[in-house]
Simulated assay, not measured.
Amino acid sequence: MLKSFFSQPLLWLLSALSGLALAQPPRGPLVMSPQVNADKTVTFRYQAPQAKAVELSAQFEKAPVAMTKDAQGIWSVTVGPVKPDIYPYSFRVDGVTVMDPANVAFFPNERFKASLVDIPGDTPLIHAMRDVPHGSINYEYYPSMEGTTGSLVVYTPPGYDQNPSKKYPVYYLISGTTDTEETFFKVGKTNLILDNLIAEGKAKPMIIVMPYGNIAARVAEQKGGSKPADPTVRDGADAVKRANDFATDLVKNVIPYTEKSYRTIPNRENRAIGGFSRGGGQTLRTAFSNMDKFAWVCAYSSYLSPEEMDRSYPALVSNAAQTNKQLKLLWVSVGSDDFLYKGTVEFMDYLKAKNVNYKSLITDGGHTWMNVKTYVAATTPLLFQQ
């Protein structure tokens, strides 16, 4: 009789693994999505054999686009050509919005996380990965308000780790409503924009600190509560209180943590603050309440109403000469199709009437991160040019 070469426990293990293998559901076909073609058209695919209808919803399309199903149950559509940029998109499957499971790139958000498609230009765009020295991205945690722990994404420029004696100016950059601390990094590609501008000699090397803007949501989450609804009135009492809470956290917690943890130049001439949408409103309120902390202020697709300016910052507008001396840059930008266009232009007109100096840029397009990248690329070369 032949002697078995397998022990009883090993036989049990092999039997179990065999059973698991048999129990695995069959794998479907490999799905490639999105596929960016040489002519700038893009093919999207989604596997859903049982679905009755699948549509593509993309920021470069005015309306959802119907997809067609093949014999393998893969829905697809080719659209474009599409203007080179980075765009969010999603699928609607029998009326339900879903991410693209074949794509690892997604839009960080408190709510639905859209997928991202990057259509490269024939010549590299300002946010493209280029063969230049690259900075680093660090994730940081700091002690914040009400005993909570705050989170930051921090960019350090090329050469930061190689020259331990050099100190840098800091740009505090704040995302919009429902965005997270990752959005300027993963969607705005701020790190790559700065790498490219620094390599071209157009921007000074700087540290960029990207905080999470929704203090109320973080406090609720960490204390076991429910995330509060976003304010319904942009300059209402609740919105202003939350913005002031953010300003307190930034000035009392984020800046001290940054200046302790990184090699910064700790004075107002070497601190800038900027933000998009809600983050732009937080920027303006934080800066105007702390003129001793910031000399460079950038508002992207955001504004403060004349009523709030008169009520909350009378000294800033009543002594324009002093304000213009303090602020080395006050920047305001917006897209012509942005739903905040009217209020932003009204804010510019107010500043002009009060003789407060500012620089502005009005672009095509709406309230999008495509425009935000344009604003970052336009403003960072102006910062810290003393």
Rank of each mutant, 00 (worst) to 15 (best):
P29F: 08
R45K: 09
E55M: 00
T41A: 07
P81M: 08
E61N: 12
K52V: 04
M32R: 11
R45L: 01
V82M: 09
A63D: 10
G28R: 13
T78Y: 05
A51P: 10
V42T: 13
P84N: 13
V77Y: 10
S33T: 14
D70N: 11
Y87H: 10
P88N: 15
I74F: 01
R92S: 06
S57N: 09
V82K: 11
S33W: 05
M67G: 07
V82W: 04
P84L: 01
P29R: 04
G80N: 08
P49H: 13
E55D: 00
Q59M: 03
A66G: 01
V79L: 05
G80S: 08
D39A: 09
G80H: 10
P49W: 14
Q72F: 02
P34C: 12
A63M: 09
K52D: 12
P34Y: 11
P34A: 14
A38W: 07
V36E: 11
A48L: 04
Y46C: 07
T41Q: 07
E61H: 04
Q35P: 09
L56I: 00
Q47S: 14
K40W: 05
G28V: 15
P29Y: 07
S76T: 09
S57E: 08
T41V: 05
V93C: 09
T68G: 03
P88D: 14
S76Y: 09
K62W: 08
P88K: 10
S57M: 05
R92Y: 01
N37M: 05
P49A: 15
K52G: 15
A63Q: 15
G80K: 01
Q72T: 07
S90K: 02
P88A: 11
P49C: 11
S33E: 07
E61F: 02
K40H: 15
F44Y: 08
F44V: 04
P29G: 06
I86D: 13
F44W: 01
R27F: 10
D70K: 07
V77A: 10
T78V: 01
K52F: 05
Q59E: 00
Q35D: 05
P84Y: 13
F91T: 10
V36T: 15
R27C: 05
G80L: 06
V31F: 11
T68N: 04
V65P: 01
M32I: 11
G28Q: 14
A71I: 02
I86P: 03
Q47D: 15
L30Y: 11
N37P: 09
K40R: 13
V31W: 12
G73E: 12
F44N: 07
A63E: 12
T78S: 03
F60D: 12
I86E: 13
A71R: 15
A71V: 08
F44A: 04
A66P: 08
P49K: 15
P49E: 15
V36D: 13
K62D: 11
T68H: 09
F44C: 08
A71Y: 08
T41E: 00
V93E: 02
V82R: 11
M32H: 14
P84E: 10
P88W: 10
V79H: 00
V36W: 12
K40C: 03
A53W: 03
T68C: 05
